[in-house]
Simulated assay, not measured.
Amino acid sequence: MSETEATVHTGGCQCGAVRFRVEGELGTASICHCRMCQKAFGSLYAPLVGIRAPATLIWTRGEPKRFQSSNHVARGFCPECGTPLTYEAPGDVGIAIGAFDNPHGIAPVIQYGVEGKLPYTDAMAAIPERRTEEDVETAVFLDTIVSNQHPDHDTETWPAIQSAAPVSPEKTK
């Protein structure tokens, strides 16, 4: 078995309706600051990693719905929960880094579309940090959260997730 055949990366959307497997080495990891990527991700930028031959992308559960965001690019997302999943251009497919089960080792090495970069993104490392459990003002609310998020691994089935009852404002005080 070659090194490429031995390398497998899995991932999927937040709800688990769409799952994927990449067999082979991942391409270049990047972030894109262009306005189209900001809107597609609903975020400050889009963190993506390329999938290029000989690596293969296989949809193992479901498949993304696609929005043709320009004449050249389609954006794939989960039709159930809306998680952004792909950037698809002729000869180029990128997968959202956060959609991988283990995104820790997929570090961006280049930034694209910097003309659209929001000026405060360079200063984000200087913003004060707080761990979730240290946020005492929201502790009661956080203690009542029941996650419907799919686990970061493949599962045999995809059950329809029942939403938890909404938390009333009185319970968060």
Results as ranks from 00 to 15, higher is better:
residue 1 M to S: 14
residue 1 M to L: 12
residue 2 S to N: 13
residue 6 A to Y: 04
residue 11 G to Y: 03
residue 18 V to E: 03
residue 19 R to I: 05
residue 34 C to W: 03
residue 34 C to H: 04
residue 35 R to E: 14
residue 36 M to K: 04
residue 41 F to G: 01
residue 42 G to N: 07
residue 44 L to C: 10
residue 51 I to Q: 06
residue 52 R to M: 08
residue 60 T to R: 03
residue 62 G to Q: 07
residue 63 E to F: 02
residue 66 R to F: 15
residue 67 F to D: 05
residue 72 H to Q: 13
residue 75 R to I: 09
residue 78 C to W: 09
residue 82 G to V: 11
residue 87 Y to D: 11
residue 88 E to S: 11
residue 92 D to S: 12
residue 93 V to W: 09
residue 93 V to C: 10
residue 98 G to H: 03
residue 99 A to N: 01
residue 99 A to T: 01
residue 99 A to I: 01
residue 101 D to V: 00
residue 106 I to M: 01
residue 111 Q to T: 02
residue 112 Y to I: 02
residue 113 G to M: 08
residue 118 L to D: 00
residue 119 P to S: 14
residue 122 D to W: 02
residue 122 D to L: 01
residue 123 A to C: 03
residue 128 P to M: 10
residue 128 P to G: 03
residue 130 R to S: 12
residue 134 E to A: 11
residue 137 E to V: 10
residue 139 A to E: 10
residue 141 F to E: 09
residue 145 I to V: 12
residue 145 I to C: 05
residue 150 H to G: 02
residue 152 D to R: 15
residue 154 D to W: 06
residue 155 T to A: 09
residue 157 T to V: 15
residue 158 W to D: 08
residue 166 P to S: 12
residue 167 V to D: 05
residue 170 E to F: 08
residue 171 K to N: 12
residue 172 T to P: 06
